[in-house]
Write a protein that binds this DNA or RNA. Structure first.
Lengths: 252, 252
DNA sequence: TCTCCCTATTTACTCCGACATATTAGGAGC
DNA sequence: GCTCCTAATATGTCGGAGTAAATAGGGAGA
């Protein structure tokens, strides 16, 4: 009998929570393991994950669990299986890189710095435009959410997870105020990258200047309905982050 | 051995192949069925897909097939399963709307016109910025790909699937020239929406003015390395499409 | 008698291993 | 060099054992 002992769950502090945590099952753990292995480059595109049975045996799990994990990876475009040919890692451009779970795998190990730059570049494109739309379409509830998030940011600062969560909430509130679902899904992806980088910078003791005033300027412009001003203020904010990321690249 | 092999399942030219069909596998067919049902609103967020056995029996498939389909939907954030509680449809903001397969399900039935507008708005934000980057970073190979795609567009026109594919290729080449993976992933999502809309407009006999010259202007600016010009030319192109989409909304 | 909490049952997912089927790679035969 | 056959391997199927969670029921306290 394959004895338990796997399930290296991290901080799953909330028992009754359904929404947040990965809430992993066995096949979820396998998918995580394989996903991080692929994202970290341990398996390169074109490589073959030889043998369903061999793999299942190596991981000490049943074929079904392994198979379900492969289903997950297949659904995210990381691999493709064909009879007799085996399960191969697909080329990078087929990967669903904006999927929150894939992103989590990418940031689980040492994320590709070039990919982080990509995400920040995407952010520098999307968020100013989003701020512009938000200034035109926000309602009172949106503004309240932003204001609360700002207050929380002030209280906790970005050195704590609570503070970073507040930062994400602030940006998410802006995306939400655009009334654009396609934009909104991007917030989760971008937020993950920003969060990781902020943590990284903190470890490196290279936190940038106080970001609160920049955030306040964005809020003020959105509250005033000043579309151009909101876009410009957000531009300042994300350009700063983009520059920081670039310099982090160099010193690395 | 990383032998280049079967990675071209999109480009299967064989007509006898079931390229059109929804499901390459049984569980894929089930996932398609359930996915379209959810995306079309037949199952609303919070609804429960009661009973693994009941559903499997209703669909005349084994529990495993149904289960693997649910895994796929879970991986895309559409549903979540919990013991005793059943499988519930998650709220919309958890859905992975930019996933190519989810997008396919969204466009399989009558897609939400508001969501289409979202995608076009995203496109109007991303593509001009992408054209700007492409003008700065493209190499000769990128330009050749764009040129070839333009030629194919001229040959086939947008009334044929081949022509629409060439259009997608053109835009994808631009995204590729940005050297930005995160942007590139979006091309598939946006391309699907544009393709669907183009077909729709064709059915409605409301094709806009000849789009080739607009595309040529974008190409010329990128080839010349004119970042601002490329952004502006692309802006014209996508704004036109966005306007068309809005008017389609009204007349519908 | 009413309320609250604790326990037990029920229910549905999760995991498992075995079997059946289909497809393909690779080699044998021409 | 081509075709066909065989073997290997992945997918599809099944039913059962295990487990976690929600609900219902009973007991204790007010």
């Amino acid at each position: 009998m394959p004895e338990a002992g796997f399930m290296n769950e991290d901080a799953n502090a909330k028992p009754g929570d359904e929404a947040r945590g990965p809430g992993r099952r066995l096949h979820g753990a396998i998918a995580h393991k394989l996903g991080t292995a692929i994202l970290s480059g341990k398996y390169a595109p074109g490589d073959i994950l030889s043998g369903e049975v061999a793999f299942a045996e190596e991981l000490q799990v049943s074929r079904s669990a392994y198979r379900e994990a492969i289903q997950v990876l297949t659904a995210k475009g990381l691999v493709a299986s064909r009879p007799k040919a085996g399960t191969r890692v697909l080329p990078r451009d087929r990967w669903n890189l904006l999927d929150p779970e894939v992103l989590g795998w990418a940031f689980a190990g040492e994320p590709d710095i070039e990919f982080v730059r990509s995400l920040f570049e995407l952010r520098a494109i999307v968020e100013p435009a989003a701020a512009r739309l938000a200034a035109q379409r926000r309602d009172k509830a949106d503004l309240k959410t932003m204001k609360d998030a700002l207050a929380a940011m002030r209280r906790h600062t970005l050195t704590t997870e609570a503070g970073r969560a507040a930062d994400r909430d602030f940006h998410k509130a802006i995306l939400q105020a655009t009334r654009n679902d396609a934009l909104l899904v991007l917030s989760a992806s971008i937020g993950a990258a920003v969060n990781w980088t902020t943590q990284f910078k903190q470890r490196a003791r290279a936190l940038p200047r106080n970001p609160i005033p920049d955030h306040v300027r964005v809020y003020d412009a959105i509250a005033a309905g000043d579309a151009a001003g909101a876009a410009e203020a957000m531009n300042v904010l994300v350009d700063l982050a983009l520059e920081d990321t670039k310099s982090s690249m160099v010193e690395k």
